[in-house]
């Protein structure tokens, strides 16, 4: 078994950073996967932390607010909100690709470059609304 593994020629296995040529479409795709994975751990972890602290009562929730209001808490919250908006926009891009649109090289490159920008704009708009009241 081990011998067979050694003699087998190395074959491409799955989309991976080493075997893909960097380009807008590839970058937005790997960013979609990275932000999705980050949201699964960081985003869902934060959601459960927030709900768990709320369900545990006012004293525990005060601890959550204290951490969330600190400078590092703000960095985490802004980071997670950015991964959310980025994943949202590149997810919408995937819906468009699913219906067969946007596969021409020029439009694919254009929307691949624009979607992370929209993600940053939405994150900024969200925090501007949040901090304005």
């Amino acid at each position: 078994m081990a011998q067979a593994t050694h003699t087998r020629k190395a074959r491409p296995i799955s989309p991976h950073l080493q075997i893909w040529r960097w380009g807008p479409g590839m970058a937005v795709s790997i960013l979609h996967r990275a932000t999705g994975s980050a949201l699964s751990f960081g985003g869902l972890g934060l959601l459960l932390c927030w709900l768990g602290c709320l369900a545990s009562g006012p004293e525990t929730y005060a601890l959550f607010l204290q951490q969330a209001g600190s400078w590092y808490g703000r960095i985490v919250l802004i980071g997670i909100s950015w991964t959310y908006f980025n994943h949202l926009v590149s997810g919408l891009r995937h819906f468009l690709l699913d219906i067969g649109a946007g596969f021409e090289v020029s439009s694919n490159n254009r929307w691949s470059a624009i979607s992370p920008v929209i993600g940053i704009v939405l994150t900024a708009a969200f925090w501007a609304c949040l901090l304005s009241h």
Binding site: L44, L47, L48, L51, G52, L54, A55, S56, G57
Partner: peptide, 17 residues
Amino acid sequence: GGAGFGLFSVIRLALGA
């Protein structure tokens, strides 16, 4: 496990923690 914990937390709050 995560979904169960989240659902329980919401239900506990909604039904009066």
